[in-house]
Design a protein around this nucleic acid. Structure first.
Length: 471
RNA sequence: GGUGCGGUGGCUGAGUGGCCGAAAGCACUCGACUUGAAAUCGAGCAGGCCCGCAAGGGCCUCGGGGGUUCGAAUCCUCCCCGCACCGCCA
């Protein structure tokens, strides 16, 4: 959520942000009008209430005494006199209370509207993010290729044989069973089998261990079934509501609904929701391995075959929660991307970094870097039946300033615990470490051999029982 | 699923109608003592919002909503959440 005060002070910044991100339906002027109305009503209500409270405090003891006197009153006449006096005394605060109530009603009308609108305002992109309409306008930052390989030239020219797609590889080597996956779970489901499952586990374990052991991230497990509050807090709702599986427990008479998370980010960010963290504990560096669920609504017909776009996968996710400092945020963003680049290099996967343009950012990001891995089996197929190869997204690194933490009410106190320091809203960042089985696509396709086997990168061999090849 | 208990500040925990935004302890901050530290002593210390150039003032919040009352952390009511034991069970 954006900071309403900041919107008041600089509406143009947010209008530009909406424009750049392509959020044309957001009516900031309406928000500003509602805010204006709300504050006006609030100010009046508060002063009336202050007056009411002052009078009540004055009158309280007198009322008490009068009530006592009425009980003890000797005759009906005396009692009537006293009762009239009491009623007169009560009339003044009562009149004020009626006025207060009318302002309260105005506020009760405005507040939910204002809040709902505010949740939809996107975080403006940073000034150094290129302006663009869609992913087509993303800008390549850099590439990395293993020695002796260049995706600009054909796979066949460099390696001496025509590449198979991962779909062919898993079929030929018995690494996955799509038919049975679909039988069990429906479309976009799969079953990993044999070395397919072992490779999946190996790459996840390797990525997880690298973050926890080499980079000092705190390993945690997180719930993947969460309350709606967490989906809203992390900024996935309301915009991405259609993308999440919804468990309607309320319809069965149970507590309330829950949602399956599409990324471990939700659980990691939820960890400290509503808390005030001692500054000395920052930054929080967290890594989790979680199963992710995505409905892929609106992707009908896209990437229907293979392991690319599926409803359920596993992902190692890194999150950093740090002080509200732009430079520190930016530094973590670079570092987190660096961790991933070194993992991809060790896996010998050609990849490139893309600076996402404003139109590709989504509501919660100020800045986002995608990493795409080279997939020889993707892309156009030529007349002879050979695929051109193409980059496919495997990672996404987001920088969100305080957008998420404000929604989650996650703050830190400068200085000591409960000391005099002010509270600030934390900054947060997140980045994929490895998502599998999608990463199996570049892994299998790049490391396939002329004789139909797959060479396992050295770093994965310990988790593959020392095995050098699949097949 | 059954029964019982509970939700108060960063934490523990007192508080059953006004003296309570809230005792006490811990933690923390500052100061004194000390060569330094510990211990001790003194002071401070909830969050948010609104008005205001500021100084300052005000309002809200004791899980959440609604209600009773001149007045609610305290009484009533509905909801949410948590814990314990029993049953079932990976």
């Amino acid at each position: 959520m954006i900071d309403l005060k900041s919107l008041r002070e600089n509406p143009q910044r947010y209008k530009d942000g909406c424009l750049k991100k392509g959020f044309t339906a957001i009516d900031l002027d309406r928000i500003l009008r509602l805010d204006e109305q709300r504050r006006k009503a609030l100010t009046e209500m508060e002063s009336l209430r202050a007056e009411q409270k002052r009078i009540e405090k004055d009158l309280g003891p007198q009322i008490g005494k009068l009530q006592g006197a009425i009980k003890k009153a000797a005759g009906d006449d005396e009692r009537a006199t006293l009762t009239a006096e009491l009623d007169a005394m009560k009339a003044r605060p009562a009149a004020l209370k009626a006025q207060v109530t009318s302002f309260e009603q105005v506020l009760q009308e405005i507040d939910p509207q204002l809040h709902a609108l505010l949740l939809e305002v996107p975080l403006p992109p940073d000034a150094d993010v290129p302006v663009g309409a869609s992913a087509d306008d993303n800008v390549e930052i850099r590439r990395w290729n293993p020695p002796g390989f260049d995706p600009a030239k054909s796979f066949e020219a460099q390696r001496g044989f025509r590449p198979k797609s991962h779909i062919e590889i898993v079929r030929d080597l018995g690494l996955a069973d799509f038919e049975r996956g679909v039988k069990i779970g429906g479309t976009r489901h799969y079953v990993l089998t044999g070395d397919g499952m072992r490779l999946h586990q190996a790459v996840l374990r390797y990525a997880f261990d690298t973050m926890a052991n080499a980079h000092g991230f705190t390993p945690v497990s997180v719930p993947v079934i969460v309350r709606e509050e967490m989906m809203v807090g992390t900024g996935f709702f309301p915009a991405g509501r259609e993308q999440a599986y919804h468990i309607e427990e309320s319809k069965r008479g149970g507590g309330h609904d829950m949602f399956l998370t599409g990324t471990g980010e939700v659980g990691l960010m939820g960890l400290y929701q509503g808390e005030i963290i001692d500054e000395s504990r920052l930054p929080l560096k967290l890594v989790t391995l979680s199963t992710c669920f995505r409905r892929e609504a609106g992707a009908a017909g896209k990437d229907t075959a293979g392991l690319y776009r599926i409803h359920q996968f596993d992902k190692v996710e890194q999150v950093v929660i740090c002080r509200a400092d732009e430079q520190e945020s930016r530094r973590w963003h670079k570092d987190m991307i660096g961790f991933v680049e070194s993992i991809l290099r060790s896996l010998e996967i050609p990849h490139r970094l893309l600076q996402c343009c404003t139109g590709d950012l989504g509501p919660k990001n100020a800045d986002m870097i995608d990493i795409e891995s080279w997939m020889p089996g993707r892309g156009e197929v030529d007349a002879s039946g050979a695929p051109s190869g193409a980059y496919g997204e495997t990672h996404s690194a987001s920088r969100l300033y305080d957008y998420q933490c404000r929604r989650l009410n996650m703050r830190y106190r400068a200085g000591g615990d409960s000391g005099k320091g002010e509270t600030h809203v934390c900054h947060s960042l997140n980045n994929t470490v490895i998502a599998s089985p999608r990463v199996l696509i570049p892994l299998l396709e790049n490391h396939q051999t002329r004789d139909g086997r797959v060479r396992i990168p050295e770093v994965l061999r310990p988790a593959m029982n020392g095995q050098e090849f699949i097949g």
